[in-house]
Design a protein around this nucleic acid. Structure first.
Length: 935
DNA sequence: GCAAGGTC
């Protein structure tokens, strides 16, 4: 059996179709892995890399003492399967195969993926011959030929790829751990470092520093208005920017009539058609359509999987010879682009345009089939598809041609110029609306004629700082510098923003992003520079050419990183302090209204709040919703009243919850509570806020003296205020308790959530759990609870109230639990039964029970129940235990009968009634007791 | 919990 292994499923599918010819291809899809069988051949696709490099076991713990970040430099590295299903399938076929052909992409990573497959197959089958097919286009001719002429894997080239994997892992992981640990970062806020991400971040930081350092200067632009044959025309001063105001003024003053035409020059310009699309150009084009880089790639991937466009991850800007242009164009003869296709057919260039980059693994991006608006589905995909179609058209269309006109004139002694342009041949511009070039038609001027000076202007302008990077501009820069690949550049940007290193589009660094970059620049500069990638690529070239070994390259790299760690560790304390101090700014939102020290967003577990950095001297704080609603993040917007940054809660997949100014919202929600005080008015609340009292509890804790002083009230007025605040606070506490109680005891149903039930209870006058425990379930039906639900709610409330009363009376929690479990949570019931019975029912000693009953009875102002000694109890109960089960003894003891003596004295009929025990049983027991007494 | 590179 011949096993052919491709890099991805779609290629496997096409290889099978090409090789099978007329034979039927049998397709088997098994979740993650598909394979194609015909004759005696199996073709299967991988999913790119199916293994990944990682450190050997033992290096997982970041804080391990034996394995600090530095130890990762020389840690052993292993390959771990990441796609177990595919690996399993490949080895299963590999065992049976008589020939294996690796048909992965024709590039360095493809060679490495091929070597991974090679090693996995070898492990399963040590003997089978394994060869390598290389094709530069996925066409029948190329594929058939490459498999027929298969050679062997290029292990040097694969080693080059491995060196990259290992260097990236070792540098990235060790530096990431070092910075994260040094700056005391948690698992969800690590400070990552990498060969590609760090230089990319540094570019954004650099641009921000340029913007900050920029000093604008003034300049002046001169222009004049004139006309010819009734057509208004504008002319610009030839000098361009005047940076000297006196010079500009002089030129302006010297601009006078007559205006004399000194030159009329007509020319011809070729406006070249654009080149075929690679990934970067696709992202740039998409960004003009308002689509982000990641989303554009996501939609392009989808279009590709559905067969509408070719493979979207490519660096190639030249169509392969095998692409039949006229056939591709014919696809669009009907459908949404038929008009444009007709135009292109009439304006076809002899050879399509080609860009500078040419690779062998994939063609440029072009449309592979016709689709209409409905088939495509969403708007963004359609816009992208249309762009790809039109771009393809443009690359096979003739160039546009312009007639240009330049008219020079003198206004007095000052030289001015007018430029115009007229399209002679629209060419590709006829079907490509994405880059517009405006025509500027000029009237016919003649040499030497004079024109009127209708107006003259001197515009004062300022030089502008360089612009922040847009996503697409950054991706272009990364490509120029060789950072990342076609498939990873957009992911790097997502990663930087996920790590909260950058924000916004155009992008700017956050405080954390900037602090990390500057620390790395100082102590590990290599990782922040694009040259690291350049050097790595040179070394990879050497390994591929066989002039250097992978081990030589790796040990050089490790040596360099060791030197960096020497430096980093020497400065560890300073780096940590610097990072922590600077990143704290990210949490600082402005001055505390009470003491003026910085207020910070704080987080403890899942609860978050805003607190004063002067704590514990200043205790000002305001609550925030728990982190399950989203992480609290500082926004740029600042409150005009309090000078505090606005705050929002961000949660994945949910729109941002804008809290706004935290103090404003704090005041707003507490004002409602203040207004529940009988004597409180809106102005009163403002007065309280003015002296930094924002909550009821703050009002109470001020104390009457200070309150009367700061508000100018008499002491009795202040006392009254505090009393009122106290009772409102108690009321609110009870309400919260009720809400909590309801939410844990009522199952929510549609149209009857917890908050609705609580609100209904409150409006019925049931304002707390205590009131609920006294309520008649029948009165609660308006709350939409069923009668059974209401009854059980009331019962639960009763039990809760009872338990809290017992606690209040001083019964310790552990014993109380035993009483409650035995059904004695009601204090009245608790003191009405005999301690002997309670002891049997709960297992608590009689002495303890007597003490507790005394406690409760005193609090209830009831006579103390009968007290018995432990000895008396034991002596009495021991003989009875021999004859009767505890089920029988407990009710008797609860009724006060716990010894043979008491039993004999009791009246059997009455006892049966009180305990619910069968009278005959009691009589039997009495006979036994009599015998015991006689002995 | 770490990188960058494949691919879905």
């Amino acid at each position: 059996m011949h096993l052919i292994i491709a890099e991805k499923n779609i290629v496997a599918e096409r290889i099978a179709a090409f090789l099978a010819g007329k034979a039927k291809v049998q397709v088997t899809r098994d979740g993650a892995a598909a394979h194609y069988v015909f004759d005696d051949t199996v073709v299967m696709g991988l999913r790119g890399h199916v293994v990944e490099v990682d450190f050997v076991e033992g290096y997982n713990n970041w804080r391990s003492v034996e394995h600090p970040p530095r130890s990762l430099i020389n840690a052993d590295i292993v390959k771990k399967p990441t796609e177990k299903k595919i690996v399993g399938l490949m080895q299963k076929f590999g065992k049976k195969a008589t020939r294996v052909t690796i048909a992965t992409d024709y590039d360095t990573e493809g060679e490495l993926i091929g070597k991974e497959a090679f090693e996995l197959i070898r492990a399963a089958n040590p003997k089978v011959p394994i060869d390598r097919a290389r094709f530069s286009a996925i066409t029948k001719d190329e594929i058939v030929k490459s498999i027929k002429e298969a050679t062997s894997l290029d292990f040097n080239l694969a080693s080059a790829g491995e060196s990259r994997q290992i260097i990236d892992l070792v540098w990235g992981a060790s530096l990431t751990r070092f910075l994260s640990i040094t700056a005391h970062r948690g698992a969800d806020s690590i400070l990552s470092v990498g060969r590609v991400q760090s230089p990319t971040l540094a570019m954004i930081v650099d641009r921000e520093r340029e913007i900050e350092a920029f000093v604008p200067t003034k300049y002046w632009m001169l222009s004049l208005a004139t006309e010819k044959s009734g057509i208004g025309v504008e002319a610009r001063h030839v000098h361009g920017r005047f940076t000297d105001s006196a010079e500009a003024k002089a030129a302006y003053d010297a601009t006078v009539e007559p205006l004399r035409v000194t030159d009329v020059i007509t020319g011809h310009k070729v406006d070249r058609a654009p080149t075929p699309l690679d990934t970067t150009a696709l992202i740039v084009g998409a960004s003009r359509l308002g689509i982000s880089a990641s989303y554009a790639m996501n939609r392009a991937e989808d279009l590709y999987m559905r067969g509408f466009i070719s493979y979207p991850r490519t660096d190639n800007t030249a169509y392969p010879k095998s692409l039949k242009i006229s056939e591709q164009l014919a696809i669009f003869a009907h459908g949404a682009f038929s008009k444009e296709a007709g135009y292109v057919k009439d304006h076809l260039r002899s050879v399509p345009t080609r860009g500078k980059k040419e690779t062998t693994d994939h063609p440029p991006i072009y449309p592979t089939s016709l689709a209409n608006r409905e088939e495509i589905g969403d708007d963004v995909s359609w816009k992208l598809y249309e762009f790809i179609v039109r771009r393809f058209f443009a690359t096979i269309c003739i160039d546009a041609e312009w007639e240009t006109m330049k008219v020079n004139l003198l206004a007095g002694s000052e030289p001015y110029t007018i430029t115009g342009g007229r399209i002679l041949e629209a060419g590709w511009r006829g079907i490509y609306p994405y880059s517009k070039a405006e025509e500027n038609l000029l009237p016919a001027f003649t040499l030497g004629e004079t024109l009127p000076l209708l107006a003259k202007t001197s515009d004062e302008k300022e030089t502008q700082p360089p612009a922040r990077y847009s996503q697409s501009r950054l991706i272009q820069r990364m490509e120029e510098l060789g950072l990342g690949t076609k498939s990873t550049r957009h992911e790097v940007i997502s990663k930087l923003s996920g790590r909260k290193y950058i924000e916004g589009n155009p992008m700017k660094p956050t405080i954390v992003g900037r602090a990390v970059t500057e620390s790395l620049e100082e102590f590990a500069g290599t990782i922040t520079e694009p040259t690291m990638t350049k050097t790595l690529e040179e070394h990879m070239g050497d390994i591929a050419a066989g002039t250097k070994t992978i081990n030589a390259v790796l040990s050089e790299s490790r040596k360099m990183l060791t030197g960096i760690f020497d430096d980093l560790e020497k400065n560890e304390a300073a780096i940590g302090r610097d990072l922590m101090e600077r990143t704290r700014e990210e949490q600082t939102i402005g001055p505390c209204p009470v003491c003026g020290k910085p207020l910070r967003i704080k987080r403890v577990g899942s609860s978050q709040f805003i607190g004063c950095s002067g704590y514990p001297d200043c205790t000002f704080n305001t609550g925030l919703p728990p982190a399950t609603w989203g992480n609290a993040i500082k926004m740029d917007e600042v409150c005009g009243i309090h000078g505090l940054n606005h705050v929002q809660l961000l949660r994945k997949g949910a729109p941002a919850w804008k809290i706004g100014c935290p103090l404003c919202s704090h005041i707003k929600s507490n004002t409602e509570s203040f207004l529940l005080m009988p004597g409180m008015t809106a102005e009163g609340v403002q007065k309280l806020n003015a002296v930094h009292i924002y909550t009821l509890s703050e009002l109470i804790s001020r104390g009457p003296e200070e309150l009367s002083k700061s508000l100018g009230l008499s002491k009795s007025e202040a006392e009254k205020l505090i009393r009122e605040a106290g009772s409102v606070l108690a009321l609110l506490k009870k309400r919260t308790e009720l809400k909590k109680f309801v939410s844990s005891h009522v199952a929510p149903k549609r149209g009857r959530g917890h908050s609705k039930v609580s609100a209904a209870l409150i409006s019925l006058g049931v304002v707390d759990v205590e009131a609920l425990s006294r309520a008649d379930p029948k009165d609660l039906l308006e709350t939409k609870l069923s009668e059974a639900e209401a009854a059980s709610l009331v019962a639960e409330a009763k039990s809760m109230v009872n338990i809290s009363r017992m606690k209040e009376y001083g019964v310790p929690a552990i014993t109380l639990k035993k009483y409650v479990n035995a059904g004695f949570d009601d204090p009245e019931k608790f003191i009405s039964v005999h301690p002997a019975g309670l002891s049997l029912a709960t297992g608590v000693s009689v002495t303890t029970i007597c003490n507790h009953q005394k406690l409760v009875a005193e609090k209830l102002c009831r006579p103390c129940p009968e007290k018995i000694s432990k000895a008396a109890f034991e002596e009495g109960i021991a003989p009875l235990r021999k004859k009767a089960e505890p089920e029988l003894l407990t009710p008797l003891a609860l009724a006060g009968v716990y010894s043979p003596d008491l039993l004999v004295k009791a009246d059997a009929k009455t006892l049966a009634k009180v305990t619910g025990i069968d009278e005959k049983q009691i009589v039997n027991l009495q006979k036994y007791a009599q015998k015991v007494l006689e002995k």
